[in-house]
Computed example of a mutant assay.
Amino acid sequence: MNFIFFITVILTATVLVVGAYVVAKLIGPRSYNPVKGEPFECGIPTRGSSWLPTHIGYYLFAILFLMFDIETMFLYPWAVAVKQFGPMALASIGFFLLVLVFGLAYAWRKGALEWK
């Protein structure tokens, strides 16, 4: 029974996505202008290449942000259901937080938190 429900959801999603695409192609405005393909930024034409190297600090900051954002996402449901699971839940979330603290300490020691 669950398999039929799963197939129905997948087929419905596929039909809706393809239907929206077809309707957009049929009734959407069409403008074939070569200027639309040019790079544009604040009304000023770009000079040089748009592919410039980015400082690694941006990536490290983003990864650290995601790491602690995911931590928050996991902590909320755990806090809601902690009474149902007992001491094992406390031990598992303690291990989870310990791994994250070690990750933060490693990033701190490597200088990933310093903006240079």
Rank of each mutant, 00 (worst) to 15 (best):
M1V: 02
N2T: 05
F3Y: 03
I4Y: 02
I7Y: 05
I7F: 10
T8W: 00
V9A: 14
V9S: 07
L11R: 04
T12C: 06
A13K: 02
A13S: 10
T14Q: 00
T14G: 05
T14I: 13
T14C: 10
V15E: 06
V15Q: 05
L16G: 01
V18M: 10
V18G: 00
V18T: 13
V18S: 12
V18L: 15
G19E: 02
Y21G: 02
V22Y: 05
V22A: 10
A24W: 07
A24K: 12
A24Y: 09
K25A: 08
K25P: 00
K25W: 11
L26I: 15
I27T: 15
I27H: 02
G28S: 04
G28W: 09
P29W: 04
R30H: 08
S31P: 07
N33W: 03
P34S: 02
P34I: 04
P34Y: 08
P34V: 03
V35I: 11
V35P: 06
G37M: 10
G37P: 08
P39C: 07
P39M: 01
F40D: 09
C42A: 14
G43C: 10
G43D: 13
G43P: 13
I44P: 01
P45V: 12
P45L: 01
T46R: 11
T46M: 04
R47W: 08
S49M: 01
S50P: 05
L52V: 14
L52H: 14
P53H: 01
P53T: 01
T54Q: 05
H55C: 04
I56F: 13
G57H: 14
G57S: 04
Y58K: 03
Y58R: 03
Y58I: 13
L60V: 02
L60P: 01
L60W: 14
F61P: 09
F61V: 01
I63M: 07
F65A: 10
F65L: 13
L66M: 13
L66K: 09
L66F: 03
F68G: 00
F68T: 02
F68P: 04
D69F: 15
I70R: 10
I70K: 11
E71Y: 09
M73E: 06
L75V: 05
Y76E: 15
P77I: 00
P77D: 08
P77E: 04
W78Y: 14
W78F: 12
W78N: 08
A79S: 10
V80C: 08
V80S: 01
V80A: 13
K83T: 00
F85W: 08
G86D: 05
G86I: 06
P87Y: 00
M88G: 04
M88V: 11
A89I: 05
L90M: 02
A91R: 14
A91M: 10
S92L: 15
G94M: 07
F95T: 09
F96S: 05
F96P: 11
L97N: 13
L97F: 07
L98Y: 15
L98D: 12
L98G: 12
L100T: 05
L100P: 03
G103D: 01
G103N: 07
G103T: 02
L104C: 12
L104V: 12
L104H: 10
A105M: 15
Y106R: 13
A107G: 11
A107R: 04
W108A: 12
R109D: 01
A112K: 04
A112H: 15
W115V: 11
W115T: 07
K116A: 11
K116T: 04
